[in-house]
Amino acid sequence: MQELYFTQMLPITLDQAWSFFSSPVNLKEITPAHMGFVVKSLHHGESMYPGQIIRYTIRPVLGIPMEWVTEITHVADKQYFVDEQRFGPYAFWHHQHRFTEVPGGVLMEDILHYKVPLGFLGKIVDAVYVKNEVLGIFRYRHEILKKRFPA
């Protein structure tokens, strides 16, 4: 299983950070266009809550559409939330989003645990392709957020 950790300082208030990140409708904005990310859930404009199911379509490889379903399993208002995959491309996906008010803004932390299916073959695919894609998504997100919330 992979464990990845990302941080980013955002020069905004905790209320602004929580409002933006707790709304599933904003996920498309911080996901690279080549992923073909579309939120399919009917009530995706609401703030997140424990037990919320969010359905997406993604196109991670060769433009082939794939359904991805996550559940918001934990929410502590203006502190953190956790999304876990229920159906999709991973054998395991657990993503913690943490927000801490600090001087000058908010420290955002992402703690991601994931595992690619297919055993030994999956380990090779992860090493050659998946991990680089995941890192690329977080790099893209970092750059988009710098532009959206400039210092």
Rank of each mutant, 00 (worst) to 15 (best):
K146P: 08
M48A: 09
G105C: 04
Y80T: 00
K40M: 13
D126N: 15
E29I: 08
R55M: 09
R139A: 15
I54Y: 01
E29P: 01
I72Y: 12
F87M: 11
V75L: 15
A33H: 15
F138H: 10
E3Y: 08
L4P: 07
N26F: 11
F149M: 03
Y129G: 06
V116P: 05
M35T: 10
F92C: 02
I111C: 05
A151N: 06
T31I: 06
G104K: 02
F81E: 02
L62I: 12
G119Q: 09
E133T: 12
M108V: 15
R148H: 07
L145A: 08
H95P: 07
S47R: 12
D110H: 13
H95S: 09
I12H: 11
K78C: 13
D77W: 00
D126L: 01
T100E: 08
M108Y: 10
P117D: 04
R148Q: 06
G51L: 11
W68S: 10
I111M: 10
Y140I: 09
N132C: 00
H97Q: 08
V102F: 02
I72G: 10
G36E: 04
G88E: 07
G104F: 09
G105I: 10
K115Q: 11
T73I: 01
L62R: 10
Y140V: 09
E109F: 06
M1P: 09
R55Y: 10
I12S: 09
Y49C: 12
I54H: 00
H34E: 15
P117T: 13
V125S: 06
L14K: 03
F21S: 07
R98A: 12
L121C: 11
R59V: 12
K78T: 01
Q85K: 08
P24E: 00
T57W: 01
E84F: 00
F6Q: 06
L62A: 14
M48I: 15
L112E: 01
F92K: 15
V25P: 00
V134C: 11
K146T: 13
S22W: 05
I72S: 06
Y90I: 03
F92P: 03
F20P: 04
M9F: 14
F149N: 08
I64P: 09
F20G: 05
R59E: 00
V39M: 06
D77T: 12
L4F: 12
Y5N: 13
P50L: 04
T57H: 03
I58D: 02
Y90L: 05
Q85V: 06
K147P: 01
Y49Q: 13
D83G: 05
H94K: 12
Q52L: 15
L118M: 11
H44K: 14
K146A: 15
P65E: 09
